[in-house]
Amino acid sequence: MDYDIDRLLPTEQISLAEPPAKKDDAISFLLDLVVENDRVDDRERALEALRERERETTTGVGKGIAIPHAQTGAVSEPSVAFCRSEAGLDFDSMDEQPAHLIFEILVPEGGSDDHLEILSSLSRSLMHDDVREGLYDAESPEEVQGVLREAIS
């Protein structure tokens, strides 16, 4: 599957500012990047879908990464938001490490497995040390896109 990073993760949905310190607030914060970019019809519904998934089990996948995600009718196209935390967020990750790189994935409802494909492609690229380092070092949303464009293929 080919991803158009500019479409999936536009610069408007990338924040390099420190996100709120609490997991739930950070999830809302990322959702709001997508809301402000006019891609969410029903903010509450999307937020509930994200929280529901989080209640099932944490999306903190370790190595400093968290990938909250949901499939919801509140969005009409697959969208990813990204933020980076210097301080690190407690995401209840299994490796007990704080999350520094947080990706939030929202995909429309429907038969496709888009969200799982995006989730696995993203996870696969984030396993590489140089990709994570590139994201830590990025100084602009464009640089974040650049790292991911190269990593996800």
Partner: peptide
């Protein structure tokens, strides 16, 4: 092959 004790690794497999 990925490390089964890594959530990131297991998630990367995308197994349905």
């Amino acid at each position: 092959p990925v490390d089964a004790s890594s959530m990131l690794g297991v998630t990367s497999l995308g197994v349905g």
